[in-house]
Design a protein around this nucleic acid. Structure first.
Lengths: 342, 342
DNA sequence: TTGAAAGCGCTAACAC
DNA sequence: GTGTTAGCGCTTTCAA
């Protein structure tokens, strides 16, 4: 009585075979309505829950999804993770997380997952796809969806249009009559340091449209951190012909850049305009004009996509994630006129 | 050949029974050294990995730990979660996460976990222990460790000394010659809104030591958010005899409080001193004097503790977490003298 | 010290 | 439609 009920208990109570109970529970075969009702009634009365372990042994499925996420401390990745959790939690799958803070951890986790039979599928955030090929030379052992990263053909990918994202920011700056606009880019993959072209393309496009001559010395890559932005901005601001606008590839870097601007006695939004990227909570506090990414939706979409692959659902076709969006705050000031520079 | 090796393959190859292989692998019985070596050699050659599913069916253990965490967006909880992940990742357990953003989610997750046989143990962050009793009237179905929360006797608890934490902040303020110090407290459990006495006790103790008369109208509770701090500070600053110092129960609230100070044309660190709590990344950027909590260690300790309970390890006795620490930055200014007020 | 055998709880193939 | 049976891969008796 106190012991957990098994499928056999249910079968006995309902006066049917265990196969029938299984069929009722999994919907994997025809069952007469009356029988089904009787079984369900007993299931309910006995508070029977099919054992995952038993089921797993025979189906080989764990009903667990994995998420490989870099830098728990970065708001953007967390927002994606939050979306992943929400979607997983609304499904029959649980979510196991694997954090990557040092480069070697990614491969360790991937290799572990490859032979640990712990997840049915994996979502990888921002980590470069090369890792996947490296960890699984013979192809991934389970479906993988990459979010905001390039990945091998064998995997699906949820991407966001960074070209448009940065285009929006740079065009905004150009529209404010800035003529010397710098780009503080960042590695796409914070762990491997791998770059991506998209943001730079967006920046170039905006410059070209505004007839701004592109100067290569105004395009620099810095670490995805406040410190990285601080240093990059410092370098740019100390140039002989310094930029009046800084388009940054993350809010964190933008905040560092703001600090660099102030450290030089310059006024934000007056002497120098700055845009961020991601729209983290802090951006609002700082009054940072930035580009909002649909991070939460990306995470959710990744999981939906993964589950479709796993369960072969129809109808649940992958919905596209919304485009990036420019959020205008105070960090770019008003339209620039050249008399302004002190 | 291409199929995954099973324990039977290993037994056959090594010329022993499967029982012997099992004994070698689990160390659960006597095996002759020569036999053991031979088995291990085959295990290695066949790249044999015991199936978790098979093992689980007979042992009933999932080798997975759960973490119930409120508000993915709050840095403090994430830092604890980061510690949990680190410790889990260094163990044989995987970590499944369950996010709680709406009050009812906590109970839903708890009830789900109670009958889903998905985790061997659970770490609960900041959620009030009442939930546990509610979800499991007959006692928890697996070991539970609560971090930074009161919990039923049936569970272990990793706590942090908030009395000392707030004492440190308030004493610092008093040491700067503030005589009218307010406390902007917050609910201990952001989901249920439950309060905790500890921080208030620390505040009172510091005031008493400095011979400051405690005014009940200076102790208020606000939401754990920037907005909450903004409003609370507003209320306090608009009092007939307003405080010159605000001790906040979180950095987020402190940041809101700073905004309220500035909105009134007052100068931070001059007219009003403010302390935060938690030492989030942003605190440094804002120059906030705050109390640093050993969040990461708390998370790690919780997992160690849980694993000790699960595996009955000896020697790994729970290490105490470090005490809170005062981090002095600019938000409190210099020692106050009464001529200063404008 | 070891091998054989009995399940753990379930699904799926098969016979009726 | 439904009951029976054969495993899934492992740990754990129980004899030998």
């Amino acid at each position: 009585m106190n012991e957990k009920a098994t499928i056999r208990d249910v079968a006995r109570e309902a006066g049917v075979g265990i196969g029938t109970v299984s069929r009722v529970l999994t919907g994997s075969g025809p069952v007469a309505p009356a029988t089904r009702r009787r079984v369900l009634e007993v299931v309910d009365r006995l508070r029977f829950r099919p054992s995952l372990a038993g089921r797993r042994l025979v189906t080989g499925r764990t009903m667990t999804l994995g998420a490989l996420v870099p830098f728990f401390t970065k708001h953007y990745y967390l927002e994606i993770l939050r979306g992943i959790e929400q979607a997983a939690s609304a499904s029959d799958y649980s979510l196991a997380i694997y954090n990557v803070e040092r480069p070697e951890q990614a491969l360790i986790h991937l290799e572990f997952l490859g032979r640990a039979q712990r997840v049915d599928g994996l979502v990888i955030i921002a980590l470069s796809g090369g890792l996947i090929s490296e960890a699984y030379p013979a192809g991934p052992p389970f479906p993988i969806v990459c979010v905001d990263a390039e990945c091998p053909d064998a995997c699906a990918s949820i991407s966001v249009d960074h070209e448009t994202g940065m285009y929006l920011a740079a065009r905004h700056l150009a529209g404010l009559c800035h003529r010397v606009i710098a780009l503080i880019d960042r590695p796409q993959d914070p762990v491997s340091g791998e770059l991506s072209q998209a943001r730079r393309d967006g920046y170039r496009k905006a410059c070209e449209e505004a007839n701004i001559q592109i100067r290569e010395d105004l395009i620099i890559v810095s670490e995805y951190s406040e410190e990285g932005g601080y240093e990059a901005a410092g370098t740019l601001l100390d140039l002989p012909d310094p930029p009046t606008a800084l388009a940054c590839a993350s809010d964190l870097q933008a905040i560092g850049a703001i600090r660099a601007v102030r450290a030089r006695g310059l006024e934000l939004g007056f002497d120098v305009a700055i845009t961020g990227y991601h729209d983290v909570d802090l951006a609002q506090y700082v009054g940072l004009t930035t580009v909002r990414l649909p991070a939460l939706q990306m995470g959710m979409t990744a999981v939906f996509d993964l589950i479709v692959r796993l369960d072969g659902l129809e109808g649940a076709e992958t919905r596209a994630t919304p485009p990036p969006e420019l959020i205008v705050r105070e960090s770019c000031g008003e339209v620039r006129n050249n008399s302004r520079r002190r």
